[in-house]
């Protein structure tokens, strides 16, 4: 009985995983071209007094 429950859980997880994975892949692949990002490169020294964030919460 327990083996059936685990099999069912794994099957459900697989279905959900396909949904997650498919969506994540689509979103990742649909990201803007990095070449366009380069047009927004940071300004040189003396022009922008900003700092580089270690990260964003």
């Amino acid at each position: 009985m327990s083996s059936r429950i685990i099999a069912a859980a794994v099957a459900v997880a697989a279905g959900l995983a396909l949904a997650v994975g498919g969506a994540a892949t689509l979103v990742s692949l649909a990201r803007p071209d990095r070449g366009i990002d380069l047009q927004n490169a940071p300004a040189g020294n003396g022009v922008d007094g900003g700092v580089v964030d270690y990260g964003t919460k």
């Binding site: 327990s2 083996s3 685990i6 099957a11 697989a14 995983a17 997650v20 994975g21 994540a24």
Partner: peptide, 25 residues
């Protein structure tokens, strides 16, 4: 070990691939 208890090859195969499908990125 829980997947092993399911005693089905298909379940094992799916479980092997599951982490890759969940985090394809």
């Amino acid at each position: 070990l829980a997947v092993e208890a399911a005693r089905r090859r298909a379940v094992v195969a799916v479980a092997v691939l599951l982490p890759l499908v969940v985090t394809p990125d």
